[in-house]
Design a protein around this nucleic acid. Structure first.
Length: 455
RNA sequence: GGUCCCUUCGUCUAACGGUUAGGACACCGCCCUUUCACGGCGGCAAUACGAGUUCGAAUCUCGUAGGGAUCACCA
């Protein structure tokens, strides 16, 4: 039987980092077993589900490049089949109508919390005699024995059936609850492996009862731990961005994000190598850790920086042009691309090259930093003299290099006497790629213009 | 509080019951160097605590402490 996994987010917000990692695990596992990875939007709570959220989930998945193998399924469109199962469960005596009102429930809940036992509805063994319509359908949980789940991540976990509460599967408005819908959809979709956050582990014991009542084949479970913030607490806004798509906006690459997320709780052979085929081959749920990992932006930065330097230059250029809405002539584009490898050595994210775009792409760029300008004023002649020499020189890195060195020797100077001012005149900055490269890539005309400018 | 799960350098983690407890990120130092980087070399740094089993425990058992998940007519 071939493997089918699913990522099942509820569209009540953007795609969370933790959710994204769950999706990645689902994707990886399915691919490893040459199966299918599906996405199901759990939008049964119509009040809280929004179109923006659905779009955000799309955007996030698309950015991470983990789009499902089949059309996305919307749970809200499957409610009929969920209700049908609820009725079947009722008819077969595995579920019952419960007429408890909210006040009665509140009291029961209070009691149950006190003595640590689940809520017991008095209607479990009573028949409907008043014929009224305000009921919910509850599942008749087994009260003896225990239920054990062989979880691919958590191992074998057992729980005494007496702690299972008679969960509601159909609300009083006849809509199915998540506890039912999820199980039915997984069955209908032929899901073989349920990989989800470990906040669902407790649900598994209850949901599996439906499967047992109906004699369905039990899927395999893998409950992966949640991701925590740097302080070990649940990831929230104050830890930084939790929306996966924000990391795109911050200049992280798809590959880096994928690499980082998948390594939170799982160890790859090579943490910086984004070779999807290799990753898929290596991936194993059994090796996923049981304890929650902390999100560490510094590690992400490191992976991103390395990925940026490995990545195809045209792709990086494309990302940069898109991010900064740059419209460049071919010559400027070429200049930027040529200097890119040097710039990328100095950044974690590609948006950090922001300050370098102007001096590279604007032909008549002139230093506009006041403090730096003052320095240049005194050195006008030096710049001109160097400019004169450069004008005579063959345009190669070697000859530019020897040209500069010759000047130093002739004037008995040190490189640090001309380096900083050259750099400021050419780039407007006090740090940049090495000067020979800068001069060479900027070209003779532009370099001379900047050196000969009257500051 | 009940139930379930977890605990190895600051962080992510590796280690058939036998390793000088390994790697990566971060940090520090040195080298390279015209700046900032990249790179190279090196350093700091961990088995939560306490018992037990064993010739031998990070690894198995129990207890303690700490952390997490969950306990809805949400998903």
């Amino acid at each position: 039987m071939s493997v089918i996994t699913r990522f099942a987010p509820s569209p009540t917000g953007f795609l969370h980092i933790g959710g994204a990692r769950t999706a990645i695990f689902n994707f990886l596992f399915a691919k490893k077993h040459k199966g299918k990875y599906l996405v199901r939007i759990e939008d049964t709570d119509l009040k809280r589900s929004t179109d923006e959220a659905i779009q955000a989930i799309h955007d996030g998945l698309e950015w991470l490049n983990i789009v499902p193998d089949e059309k996305i399924i919307y749970q809200s469109q499957e409610v009929k089949s969920h209700v049908k199962i609820a009725v079947e469960l009722l008819e077969k005596g595995f579920a019952y109508k419960c007429y408890l009102n909210s006040d009665e429930l509140k009291q029961l809940r209070f009691k149950s919390r006190e003595n640590g036992s689940p809520i017991k509805s008095p209607w479990r063994d009573k028949l409907n005699k008043n014929n009224d319509d305000s009921f919910v359908i509850r599942l008749k949980m087994p009260s003896k024995g225990k239920t054990t789940i062989r979880d691919l991540v958590q191992g074998e976990v057992s729980v005494n059936n007496e702690i299972l509460d008679d969960m509601i599967i159909l609300r009083s408005d006849r809509s199915p609850t998540y506890m039912l819908s999820s199980v039915v959809d997984d069955y209908n979709m032929g899901i073989t492996h349920i990989i989800r956050g470990d906040d669902h582990l407790n649900n598994a014991f209850r949901q599996v009862q439906i499967i047992k009542f109906l004699n369905w084949k039990e899927p395999s479970y893998a409950h992966v731990p949640l991701i925590h913030g740097s302080d070990g607490l649940k990831l929230s806004k104050r830890h930084g961005a939790t929306n996966i798509f924000d990391y795109h906006k911050m200049g992280y690459t798809t590959e880096a994000m994928f690499l980082y997320l998948m390594q939170l709780g799982w160890t790859a052979n090579n943490e910086n190598d984004f070779d999807l085929d290799k990753i898929i081959k290596e991936f194993s749920l059994e090796k996923v850790n049981k304890s929650p990992a902390r999100f560490d932006i510094k590690k992400l930065n490191s992976i991103n920086s390395k990925n940026l330097r490995q990545k195809d230059l045209d792709e990086v250029l494309e990302l940069i042009m898109k991010h900064f809405s740059l419209k460049l002539e071919n010559i400027q584009k070429y200049r930027l691309k040529s200097l890119l490898p040097e710039l990328l050595k100095r950044t974690n994210t590609y948006i950090e090259i922001k300050d370098d775009i102007e001096w590279i792409t604007i032909d008549d760029f002139i230093c506009n930093n006041k403090d730096n300008l003052l320095i240049l004023k005194d050195k006008n002649t030096t710049l001109k003299e160097i400019g004169f020499l450069l004008n005579e020189c063959i345009w190669s890195k070697d000859s530019i290099d020897s040209c500069l060195k010759k000047y130093i020797i002739d004037k008995s100077l040190k490189f640090k006497d001309i380096g900083p001012i050259l750099r400021i005149a050419l780039t407007g900055k006090t740090s940049s790629p090495d000067l020979v490269t800068v001069i060479y890539e900027l070209g003779c005309t532009i370099s001379l213009n900047r050196l000969n400018y009257k500051y």
